[in-house]
Design a protein around this nucleic acid. Structure first.
Lengths: 376, 376
DNA sequence: CGTGGGGCTGCAAAGGTTTGCAATGAAGTA
DNA sequence: TACTTCATTGCAAACCTTTGCAGCCCCACG
């Protein structure tokens, strides 16, 4: 039933190799023959069998996308962008969800390896060394994780966290909590590092709560803990947790931003729609998806894999690009952050309600006044 | 570099066919040989090449998932559930996004046909006849669309819309708007039909606004129109539009639910997190994803496709199951709906503020008092 | 007129796997 | 002892495509 190259050859009275060349090397076939073959192919509804082609060329024209949690709203825009970019380059995309499970990640790389030309590892939870090891099996591009020697797409959450802390300090907050995410997350480590440094520089005290599940319930679960501690502001690992936290605080009768300011990370669609609208560090997820696909395909084109048959490419030295791209983040100030206990009276927004109005205004870290506080 | 069945055969001193059988028909090989072969395979890190296997068996162990818009929060839970279910059955999943474009849908079915054992068409926008035609090329399961002769997974949005309208009528609303979605959406037609009937039965007037883009901006764009019309309640095509509408109304100074009640459809995560929390018709998206995969795989198992080689199956009569599953929906009442102009004074919630308190209480449609108002 | 070259096409092997059939050998039956 | 049966394994074709090589024809050049 399925129409093959052979059917087209029979119909157009040429050898199968001519049909093949009509599609994969048109300049090698006589224009007249070409149009005839194409007409027959069109007639019969012929579509090349990519699996058979892959068997001999070693290139499947598929890529794999391994995602920690598809239901986390951070990922769909990334998936969408990656799929779109891949398809424009005539690639199809396998998507697999690991449920934040490192074991599943490894198993999936193995399972997909033979069916794809490369894999995008998005926010991996496994160890760097395992990633390096797997990258010997199939070309890898890592998103949201820095692995030396491998191409990575990173979002500058360090800069984002710094901007967020500076924003909070500028508003007069001095005791700030960092709501940590998954332990094995690179983003998590970067945020801790950068937020800690920024807090020190601004004369504020940063306490780390966590690790927590990077979900809404992960955020609401710590509401009680946040209330008991005496922080006046919280920087959350991501928007989902920030929103969960706001929900939880609301249930406890703690008002945001009046009593506690909350900042998230990611700028998922959701964050513009909650009340209060969330102040957050926007991460360029779509750009990350596009960039990662580009990097994968670029590296792939240079090094055709496998296939020692007669069709094996001539490129023997497998040279891999190992660029690491850092994408800028962007603090978006909305309504979930407000003046803290040490706010300078000059601020017209509201009268300071801190217990210590005669406190010096601190080192005077400027607030990131606009959404343009992007990373370097 | 990639280790094949041949390497394992050499290492364990048997013919390649024995290695093959060790994996695909273990009962045919001597237990001793089997363990030896398995040990060698493990040692060498052998993984069967599914593309090569597909070439001869005609079964790829892949399925395709064609989605109108991955970024629409309605779909990720469906994708996640489908992918999980597929993987449990040892299938991998291609995901493709059509951007609500019918042409892209068709092209993707063609492109994927040779690489998958079947395709899930989720909320398709193309015509029924085209879908039927495509189903001759590759097994199809359709989600959110009824196509006679094809297996379908449907959500009973008709019942959901009815419950929503009855809820609104019960609250004392008599002029209700239906915020329509995409013209070619089956869900959209079902909702119009059922909502219209329910409104008539309840003595209410239903005006249809649309079609509109099924997005947040699609919702906010009609806020002005809603305000100008004299409706006191709106049933939106989906939650995204409902939330957009609430945003838009808010910007115009119209309060929800005090002045206008709003009901959505889908119960995306988001709808629990906005203020006011959205009253909505919950659709079982995850169950739909699982069910659709099950139906596809079941139908697939009965009819091995293609492969006229020596390995071609003996099942000649291609019998396709054509079950159509209707999943129940569930009205979830939250805070975006409140009493309307014709609310009965007896209701303790709030005093009626309608212009006509002495109006008869209408046919007395009971309100769907709990979230248990499920479809039959 | 002979030779060379270029354009186009055909031939056949190769890629990794599955599977019907045949071969082998051993055990069981008459 | 001879014949059947069964379990196990090997053989080779087939799936669909790509591609190096070789053959063919024709034209141009010397």
């Amino acid at each position: 039933m399925p129409v093959t190259i052979r059917d087209v050859a029979r119909a157009s009275g040429v050898h199968i190799s001519t049909v093949s060349r009509t599609f994969s090397a048109p300049h090698l076939v006589n224009p007249e023959t070409r149009v005839r073959v194409l007409a027959c192919a069109e007639d019969l509804g012929y579509r090349p069998n990519r699996a058979a082609r892959a068997l001999i060329t070693g290139r499947t024209h598929n890529i794999g996308l391994i995602i920690a949690d598809i239901a986390n709203p951070f990922f769909p825009p990334l998936i969408k962008a990656a799929e779109s970019q891949a398809r424009h380059r005539d690639y199809h995309v396998f998507v697999a969800d690991t449920n934040e499970d490192p074991t599943a990640e490894e198993e999936l790389v193995h399972a997909l390896a033979k069916q794809v030309d490369g894999v995008l590892l998005c926010s991996p939870r496994m160890s760097n060394s395992l990633i390096e090891q797997l990258s010997r099996e199939v070309p890898l591009v890592v998103v949201n994780r820095q692995v030396t020697g491998l191409p990575c797409v990173l979002m500058d959450v360090g800069q984002g966290a710094r901007a967020a802390i500076e924003h909070l300090v500028g508003l007069g907050h001095r005791r700030i909590a960092l709501l940590g995410g998954p332990r094995s997350s690179w983003t998590n480590r970067e945020m801790r590092r950068a937020a800690g440094a920024a807090a020190r520089a601004g004369g504020a005290e940063l306490t780390v709560l966590g690790p927590n599940a990077p979900t809404e319930v992960g955020g609401s679960a710590v509401a009680e803990q946040v209330r008991r501690s005496d922080v006046s502001a919280v920087l959350a690992y991501n928007d989902l947790m920030a929103i969960g936290l706001i929900e939880g605080l609301d249930a406890l009768g703690v008002r945001v931003p009046q009593e506690v300011s909350v900042v998230g990370v990611d700028d998922i669609t959701l964050s513009r729609l909650t009340r209060p609208k969330l102040t957050t560090v926007a991460t360029p997820t779509a750009a990350a998806g596009r960039t990662a696909v580009d990097m994968l395909l670029q590296q792939d084109i240079e090094s055709p894999r496998g296939a020692r048959g007669p069709g094996a490419g001539t490129a023997l030295g497998v040279r891999r690009t190992t660029a690491q791209v850092m994408l800028q983040t962007d603090l978006v100030i909305r309504d979930s952050t407000g003046p803290g206990p040490y706010a300078r009276p000059a601020r017209p927004l509201a009268a300071p309600r801190g217990p210590d109005p005669h406190c010096p205004a601190g080192p005077g870290i400027p607030t990131a006044a606009t959404g343009d506080a992007v990373a370097s």
